[in-house]
Design a binder for these strands. Sequence first.
RNA 1: GGGUGUUUAGCUCAGUGGGAGAGCGCUUCCUUCACACGGAAGAGGUCACUGGUUCGAAACCAGUAACACCCACCA
Length: 858
Amino acid sequence: MLDKRYDPKKVEEGKYETWKSNGYFTAGDNTKPSFSMVIPPPNVTGKLHLGHVMDTIPDDIIARYKKMKGFDVLWIPGMDHAGIATQAKVEAKLREQGVSRYDLGREGFLKEAWKWKDEYAKTIHAQWAKIGLSVDYTRERFTLDEGLNAAVKHVFVTLYNEGLIYQGERIIHWDPELRTALSNIEVVHKDVPGQFYYFKYDIEGEDDALIVATTRPETMWGDTAVFVNPKDPRYQKYIGKRVKNPCNGEWLPLMGDSYVDMSFGTGAMKCTPAHDPNDFALAKKYGFPLIRVMDETAHLLPIAGEFAGMDRYEAREKLVEKIKAEGHLDHIETFVHSVGFSERSNTVVEPMLSKQWFVKMKPLADKVLEMQQGEGKVEFKPKRFENVLIRWMKNVEDWCISRQLWWGHRIPAYYNKKTGEILVSETEPNMEEYDQDEDVLDTWFSSALWPFATMGWPKSTPDFDRYFPTSTLVTGYDIIFFWVSRMVFQSEHFTGKAPFKKVLIHGLMRDEQGRKMSKSLGNGIDPLDVIDRYGVDALRYFITTSSTPGLDMRYSDEKLQSSANYLNKIWNATRYVESVLGEDFVPGKLEKKDLGTLERYILTRLEKTIKKVTTKMDAYEFGAASTALYDFVYDDFCSYYLEMSKVSLSDPSKEAPVKQTLYFVAKSLILMIFPYCPFIGEELYLSLPGHKDSAMLESYPTYDKNLVFAHDEVAGKTLEAMIKDVRSYKSASKMAPNAPITICISPKAPFKGIEDYLKRFLFAKEVKIEKEAPKGETFLYKSVSMVLSLDQSVEEIRAGLMKEKERLTFELARGEKMLSNPNFVAKAPKEKLDIEKAKFADNQAKLREVLTRLDSLN
RNA sequence: GGGUGUUUAGCUCAGUGGGAGAGCGCUUCCUUCACACGGAAGAGGUCACUGGUUCGAAACCAGUAACACCCACCA
């Protein structure tokens, strides 16, 4: 017997270990159709947060559902080495011990990083177990394992040989704290208040000075020219003269170029080719030298003279002071401008000239765009996110893939020690003759290969043949650019196929006030805390059911509580069923002929629910699926059938079919909730008689039209309505709920034996079934009426009937309006027309009944 | 500058061409043997606004407003 209360902690204990050790998570049954997914690999940077939970719980629900639907489900788990993020964490840890990565050297540092990885992998495993992920551990991978490394090398070398990877000197985003290059999308732009410095540049041979505005005084040593728009009447006359750089007194050419926006600042712009991408482009055009001013830590180089060695901000401040002292500062304006921050270190990135490796994106992106036009396209849910991908692919820039880090896949490029000649190769050359490139690859370079490299690619393996492409990917909209887009183009290029057929995009979890969760706000929520308070099943239920795909959701204690309450409801309903079934119950077949009206009613409702839930599950609409089940559980089962069954069971002749029905319904709903809430689902399933070893071995309930009884459904609904009407009536008339009444049903009861139910639930002294009902408070249903005898005066009865007449008249007017509209009759679908016609006829009959009764009062 | 999303009950959100829904909160009543983490009965809404399409619009289209997000630019 189950306990009186659902205790999540007790229920969760031990189940995961049992599933895992029994091999329920392991794929490989070739007799079944395959269904495959890969986990979005969490970073080995720390504990799981709600973001991972949001990625993986829908995955798990899909995996468990598909398994119960008869698929051979492969769900590959794994983790991401997360290059920059992890290296930053390991460095921070070392720093606490007073050690820098340079003290340890490459080898020593990597040893530390692997230790870190092993430690956090343990934590992540424990958390996967905690939230119940049914992943296939026999196939677990890591983005930095040998197989992935081989795949990465193969991809790099192939793209290089195809001319799609190249080395180039360009302006890139530089993180001066982590001392590495970044790709465009690793830079987060934020609007911040800043200063706009207006400096006076003396003009050669003129008394006049040119005012040039800049936000970056500290780069002025790298200036090679000053530009104005050639159409600018203010400055036209000076073009071709020289102006004096107030930072070091050097003469710079004043040039005209239409790039300059006359309305911005003073309309005069300094050109710093090595520290600004636009200036770099101008420098290329005019053949200016590229003068670097800062080193890799954003400290000034010797070119800055007395300022050399200063940090960029200190230098800015000191330089402005100096220029001001020399009388060349015009004024300073404060304004808000957009500044790029490193996604990982949150320091201001420095646009810097640097030699890096790039992926030539245009040809790869074009192929993706072409693929999305055809049959093999990736289908997004919600659809609109496909446009996010397409727009990005259309405007994509070359991808800077080299990182000046140690933790990652080292670039398979080798330089001949003598000749300097480059060799790009999957196999290592004689290292006495060669030096390997020091850099590693962007972490997303390996993540991009995840769906196929985890299956053994580039080797042709049985797993790859059977499970690739994967069926579905679940991820957040915030990493479409980072991950989804890159998987798509790499997969298209190397396998000729999209890596997954569908992508289910979810939103982000926000805090209860609707704010983004962030470290700086300290409003992050630890999933383990939530699990501790409400249980993991409530968390799983909340996360997948109280949001719409693609939209952000708010964390809500209230909703977690109500999820837990729902599970408690199912728990107690099951408990009731078991108490009814008793020890010696044996599950049997439901025999149509034995089933009473109410059994047929609840089975009909159940089958309709199964149909709806299945449709919604297949469409990955978990909110809608769960609502359908929820309504069934509360309204049809617990509030109605379960209560009615108490009456039925007092009749020994009904006992057997009622028990079979209760068992069948309870088992079905437990199996339907199971993919969402596997812990309580398993506990309840195992507490039922005649169970298998696990709910994981069961099939998902399937719609059975032999258990749909339209007529009995109507009869059951009529009884339900009768009870509700009388209760409402009593409440509205200030009668006690248990006030005794007499009920008369005419001309014919909706089903045999209805008296017992009415007596029990309405406190009726007597229920009469007669051709002609007496005068009294009247309720009308389809082909039957119910009259309460309440010792009412004629006036009261008349008032009740008048109210009903008024209502019916209104209804008839509505129907009349519709049905007499020739356009409606001609254009509305036939079903709708039939419904309205039937309703109209029904209301007419009811009105006649009311009028007859009113007549008889006189 | 370009794009996307949101706007529905006091709050948080579902719904999506055919009579406005849920959870929580609120009112009244109920410890009756599955559950007080409960039950019963209620109150509460010009579905942001303006036009249009349609027999019929909360839903489709166009526009407006507010809020949020993404991308690009910013000397």
